[in-house]
Amino acid sequence: MGLTGQSSGISLLNNKFNITKKSDEQIVIALAGNPNTGKSTLFNHLTGLNQHTGNWPGKTVCNAQGTFKYKDKDYLLVDLPGTYSILANSVEEEIARDFICFGNPDITIVITDSTCLERNLNLVLQITEITDNVVLCLNLMDEAKRKGIDIDIKKLEKSLGIPVIPTVARDGKGVNDLLFTIHNIVEGISKPTPYKMTYDDSIEALVKEIEDNLSGLLDESLNSRWITLRLIDGDKSILKSIKEILNSPSYEEREV
Protein backbone atom coordinates (compact mmCIF):
# COMPACT_ATOMS: atom_id res chain seq x y z
CA MET A 1 0.00 0.00 0.00
CA GLY A 2 1.05 3.54 0.12
CA LEU A 3 0.26 6.12 -2.39
CA THR A 4 3.01 8.69 -2.51
CA GLY A 5 2.43 11.84 -0.61
CA GLN A 6 2.54 13.89 -3.74
CA SER A 7 -0.23 12.24 -5.68
CA SER A 8 -2.59 11.96 -2.75
CA GLY A 9 -1.83 15.61 -2.22
CA ILE A 10 -3.02 16.54 -5.68
CA SER A 11 -6.31 14.71 -5.33
CA LEU A 12 -6.87 16.35 -2.00
CA LEU A 13 -6.15 19.75 -3.46
CA ASN A 14 -8.87 18.97 -5.90
CA ASN A 15 -11.44 17.40 -3.65
CA LYS A 16 -11.21 19.37 -0.48
CA PHE A 17 -9.72 22.70 -1.38
CA ASN A 18 -11.14 23.18 -4.84
CA ILE A 19 -7.74 23.83 -6.30
CA THR A 20 -6.73 22.61 -9.70
CA LYS A 21 -3.14 22.20 -10.62
CA LYS A 22 -2.37 22.84 -14.26
CA SER A 23 0.25 20.13 -14.35
CA ASP A 24 2.15 17.84 -12.01
CA GLU A 25 5.16 20.10 -12.34
CA GLN A 26 3.34 23.11 -10.93
CA ILE A 27 4.66 23.96 -7.50
CA VAL A 28 2.09 24.72 -4.80
CA ILE A 29 2.92 27.45 -2.31
CA ALA A 30 0.76 28.26 0.68
CA LEU A 31 0.80 31.85 1.94
CA ALA A 32 0.00 32.09 5.64
CA GLY A 33 0.28 34.91 8.14
CA ASN A 34 -1.34 37.00 10.85
CA PRO A 35 -4.02 39.49 9.78
CA ASN A 36 -2.76 42.90 8.62
CA THR A 37 0.75 41.79 7.75
CA GLY A 38 0.51 42.67 4.06
CA LYS A 39 -0.37 39.15 2.99
CA SER A 40 -2.74 40.26 0.26
CA THR A 41 -0.22 42.86 -0.91
CA LEU A 42 2.41 40.17 -1.38
CA PHE A 43 -0.15 37.90 -3.04
CA ASN A 44 -1.14 40.63 -5.49
CA HIS A 45 2.46 41.52 -6.12
CA LEU A 46 3.40 37.94 -6.99
CA THR A 47 0.38 36.97 -9.04
CA GLY A 48 -0.56 40.29 -10.62
CA LEU A 49 -3.79 39.82 -12.51
CA ASN A 50 -3.34 36.04 -12.78
CA GLN A 51 -5.57 35.32 -9.85
CA HIS A 52 -8.92 33.89 -9.14
CA THR A 53 -10.75 35.12 -6.08
CA GLY A 54 -14.42 34.28 -6.14
CA ASN A 55 -16.45 37.21 -7.31
CA TRP A 56 -15.37 39.82 -4.84
CA PRO A 57 -11.77 40.53 -3.94
CA GLY A 58 -10.88 41.92 -0.59
CA LYS A 59 -10.72 40.10 2.68
CA THR A 60 -9.91 36.47 2.17
CA VAL A 61 -12.71 34.18 3.20
CA CYS A 62 -12.09 31.23 0.95
CA ASN A 63 -8.77 30.40 -0.56
CA ALA A 64 -7.70 32.87 -3.18
CA GLN A 65 -5.34 31.36 -5.70
CA GLY A 66 -3.05 32.77 -8.34
CA THR A 67 -0.21 31.69 -10.56
CA PHE A 68 3.21 33.08 -11.42
CA LYS A 69 6.37 31.99 -13.15
CA TYR A 70 9.92 32.22 -11.87
CA LYS A 71 12.99 30.86 -13.63
CA ASP A 72 10.91 28.67 -15.96
CA LYS A 73 8.95 27.07 -13.17
CA ASP A 74 5.20 27.38 -12.73
CA TYR A 75 3.92 28.24 -9.29
CA LEU A 76 0.44 28.11 -7.81
CA LEU A 77 0.08 30.45 -4.85
CA VAL A 78 -2.73 29.86 -2.37
CA ASP A 79 -3.64 32.77 -0.10
CA LEU A 80 -4.85 31.42 3.25
CA PRO A 81 -7.03 33.41 5.66
CA GLY A 82 -5.08 35.67 8.01
CA THR A 83 -4.98 34.12 11.49
CA TYR A 84 -3.03 34.47 14.75
CA SER A 85 -2.94 30.76 15.21
CA ILE A 86 -3.82 27.58 13.35
CA LEU A 87 -5.06 25.66 16.33
CA ALA A 88 -8.47 25.72 14.68
CA ASN A 89 -10.54 27.83 17.02
CA SER A 90 -12.41 29.39 14.12
CA VAL A 91 -13.41 28.61 10.56
CA GLU A 92 -10.53 30.63 9.13
CA GLU A 93 -8.02 28.83 11.30
CA GLU A 94 -9.43 25.49 10.30
CA ILE A 95 -9.08 26.31 6.59
CA ALA A 96 -5.48 27.44 7.05
CA ARG A 97 -4.60 24.46 9.19
CA ASP A 98 -6.19 21.85 6.94
CA PHE A 99 -4.49 23.26 3.89
CA ILE A 100 -1.02 23.29 5.39
CA CYS A 101 -1.46 19.90 7.03
CA PHE A 102 -3.46 17.91 4.48
CA GLY A 103 -3.09 19.93 1.28
CA ASN A 104 0.62 19.17 1.18
CA PRO A 105 1.92 22.44 -0.23
CA ASP A 106 5.49 22.20 -1.54
CA ILE A 107 6.46 25.31 0.37
CA THR A 108 4.71 27.50 2.94
CA ILE A 109 5.54 31.18 3.15
CA VAL A 110 4.71 32.72 6.51
CA ILE A 111 4.48 36.47 6.20
CA THR A 112 5.04 38.39 9.43
CA ASP A 113 4.84 41.96 10.69
CA SER A 114 8.35 43.00 11.73
CA THR A 115 6.93 45.59 14.11
CA CYS A 116 5.48 42.91 16.37
CA LEU A 117 7.62 39.89 15.69
CA GLU A 118 6.85 38.08 18.93
CA ARG A 119 3.16 37.56 18.30
CA ASN A 120 3.89 36.60 14.68
CA LEU A 121 6.49 34.03 15.71
CA ASN A 122 3.74 32.18 17.52
CA LEU A 123 2.20 31.29 14.16
CA VAL A 124 5.60 30.55 12.61
CA LEU A 125 6.39 28.03 15.35
CA GLN A 126 2.99 26.38 14.90
CA ILE A 127 3.55 26.01 11.18
CA THR A 128 7.10 24.68 11.43
CA GLU A 129 5.64 22.01 13.70
CA ILE A 130 3.65 20.71 10.74
CA THR A 131 5.98 21.11 7.81
CA ASP A 132 9.68 21.65 7.18
CA ASN A 133 9.61 23.67 3.98
CA VAL A 134 8.81 27.02 5.51
CA VAL A 135 10.15 30.40 4.48
CA LEU A 136 9.71 33.38 6.78
CA CYS A 137 8.94 36.63 5.01
CA LEU A 138 9.70 39.48 7.39
CA ASN A 139 7.44 42.15 5.95
CA LEU A 140 6.85 45.82 6.77
CA MET A 141 10.55 46.37 7.34
CA ASP A 142 10.10 50.06 6.50
CA GLU A 143 7.62 50.50 9.35
CA ALA A 144 9.92 48.62 11.71
CA LYS A 145 12.75 50.93 10.75
CA ARG A 146 10.59 53.96 11.38
CA LYS A 147 9.70 52.63 14.80
CA GLY A 148 13.38 52.07 15.59
CA ILE A 149 13.05 48.30 15.59
CA ASP A 150 16.16 46.39 14.62
CA ILE A 151 15.99 42.67 13.89
CA ASP A 152 19.03 40.44 13.73
CA ILE A 153 18.10 38.41 10.64
CA LYS A 154 21.01 35.96 10.83
CA LYS A 155 20.30 35.17 14.44
CA LEU A 156 16.60 34.71 13.71
CA GLU A 157 17.40 32.32 10.86
CA LYS A 158 19.59 30.33 13.21
CA SER A 159 17.02 30.19 16.01
CA LEU A 160 14.23 29.09 13.69
CA GLY A 161 16.24 26.98 11.27
CA ILE A 162 14.44 28.40 8.24
CA PRO A 163 15.31 31.14 5.69
CA VAL A 164 14.25 34.63 6.77
CA ILE A 165 13.75 37.23 4.04
CA PRO A 166 13.18 40.89 4.96
CA THR A 167 10.71 42.59 2.58
CA VAL A 168 8.65 45.69 1.96
CA ALA A 169 5.95 43.98 -0.10
CA ARG A 170 4.14 47.17 -1.09
CA ASP A 171 7.26 48.46 -2.84
CA GLY A 172 8.26 45.01 -4.04
CA LYS A 173 11.48 45.20 -2.02
CA GLY A 174 12.95 41.82 -1.14
CA VAL A 175 10.42 39.90 -3.21
CA ASN A 176 13.13 38.72 -5.60
CA ASP A 177 15.18 37.39 -2.69
CA LEU A 178 12.07 35.58 -1.52
CA LEU A 179 11.54 33.99 -4.93
CA PHE A 180 15.18 33.03 -5.18
CA THR A 181 15.04 31.36 -1.78
CA ILE A 182 11.93 29.43 -2.79
CA HIS A 183 13.62 28.41 -6.03
CA ASN A 184 16.60 27.07 -4.11
CA ILE A 185 14.38 24.95 -1.90
CA VAL A 186 12.43 23.62 -4.88
CA GLU A 187 15.68 22.74 -6.65
CA GLY A 188 16.94 21.02 -3.53
CA ILE A 189 19.87 23.43 -3.26
CA SER A 190 18.90 24.34 0.28
CA LYS A 191 16.75 22.59 2.82
CA PRO A 192 15.17 24.22 5.86
CA THR A 193 15.60 22.36 9.13
CA PRO A 194 13.20 24.14 11.44
CA TYR A 195 13.44 24.25 15.20
CA LYS A 196 10.92 21.80 16.65
CA MET A 197 8.98 22.54 19.79
CA THR A 198 9.37 20.22 22.74
CA TYR A 199 6.92 20.25 25.62
CA ASP A 200 6.76 19.22 29.26
CA ASP A 201 7.67 15.63 30.02
CA SER A 202 4.08 14.74 30.84
CA ILE A 203 2.98 15.89 27.40
CA GLU A 204 5.89 14.28 25.59
CA ALA A 205 5.19 10.93 27.25
CA LEU A 206 1.57 11.04 26.16
CA VAL A 207 2.58 12.08 22.64
CA LYS A 208 4.79 9.03 22.37
CA GLU A 209 2.05 6.67 23.51
CA ILE A 210 -0.53 7.97 21.06
CA GLU A 211 1.79 8.61 18.16
CA ASP A 212 2.71 4.92 18.08
CA ASN A 213 -0.95 4.05 17.73
CA LEU A 214 -1.54 6.66 15.11
CA SER A 215 1.44 6.46 12.80
CA GLY A 216 0.43 3.10 11.28
CA LEU A 217 -2.88 4.57 10.23
CA LEU A 218 -1.76 7.64 8.41
CA ASP A 219 -0.03 8.27 5.17
CA GLU A 220 3.61 9.05 5.79
CA SER A 221 3.14 12.48 4.28
CA LEU A 222 1.02 13.45 7.28
CA ASN A 223 2.82 14.56 10.39
CA SER A 224 1.71 12.15 13.09
CA ARG A 225 3.46 14.00 15.94
CA TRP A 226 1.66 17.18 15.12
CA ILE A 227 -1.70 15.45 14.76
CA THR A 228 -1.10 13.75 18.10
CA LEU A 229 -0.38 17.09 19.71
CA ARG A 230 -3.64 18.49 18.37
CA LEU A 231 -5.51 15.51 19.76
CA ILE A 232 -3.94 16.08 23.16
CA ASP A 233 -4.79 19.72 22.76
CA GLY A 234 -8.42 18.60 22.76
CA ASP A 235 -9.02 19.53 19.14
CA LYS A 236 -12.10 17.65 17.95
CA SER A 237 -12.07 19.06 14.44
CA ILE A 238 -8.79 17.37 13.57
CA LEU A 239 -10.38 13.96 14.03
CA LYS A 240 -13.17 15.03 11.74
CA SER A 241 -10.64 16.17 9.16
CA ILE A 242 -8.70 12.90 9.42
CA LYS A 243 -11.83 10.80 9.00
CA GLU A 244 -12.79 12.93 6.01
CA ILE A 245 -9.42 12.39 4.42
CA LEU A 246 -9.26 8.66 5.13
CA ASN A 247 -12.65 8.33 3.48
CA SER A 248 -11.89 10.56 0.52
CA PRO A 249 -11.81 8.87 -2.92
CA SER A 250 -8.12 9.59 -3.38
CA TYR A 251 -7.29 7.63 -0.28
CA GLU A 252 -9.45 4.66 -1.22
CA GLU A 253 -7.94 4.51 -4.69
CA ARG A 254 -4.73 3.30 -3.23
CA GLU A 255 -6.28 0.00 -2.21
CA VAL A 256 -7.22 -0.76 -5.80
Binding site: L117, L121, V124, G148, D150, D152, S159, M197, I232
Partner: peptide, 27 residues
Protein backbone atom coordinates in the same frame (compact mmCIF):
# COMPACT_ATOMS: atom_id res chain seq x y z
CA UNK B 1 -2.60 20.11 28.33
CA UNK B 2 -3.97 22.54 25.78
CA UNK B 3 -3.03 25.57 27.89
CA UNK B 4 0.45 24.20 28.39
CA UNK B 5 0.99 23.69 24.67
CA UNK B 6 -0.20 27.18 23.74
CA UNK B 7 1.81 28.81 26.54
CA UNK B 8 4.95 26.91 25.62
CA UNK B 9 4.80 28.08 22.01
CA UNK B 10 4.29 31.68 23.11
CA UNK B 11 7.15 31.37 25.59
CA UNK B 12 9.46 30.20 22.83
CA UNK B 13 8.27 33.02 20.56
CA UNK B 14 8.97 35.53 23.31
CA UNK B 15 12.39 34.07 23.95
CA UNK B 16 13.40 34.23 20.28
CA UNK B 17 11.95 37.73 19.86
CA UNK B 18 13.83 39.02 22.90
CA UNK B 19 16.95 37.50 21.45
CA UNK B 20 16.81 39.07 18.00
CA UNK B 21 14.81 42.31 18.36
CA UNK B 22 16.27 45.60 19.58
CA UNK B 23 13.97 48.58 19.98
CA UNK B 24 15.23 52.12 19.99
CA UNK B 25 12.16 54.23 19.34
CA UNK B 26 13.21 57.82 18.82
CA UNK B 27 9.92 59.09 17.42
Amino acid sequence: FGDKIVSKIYEKAEQIANDVVKINDTR
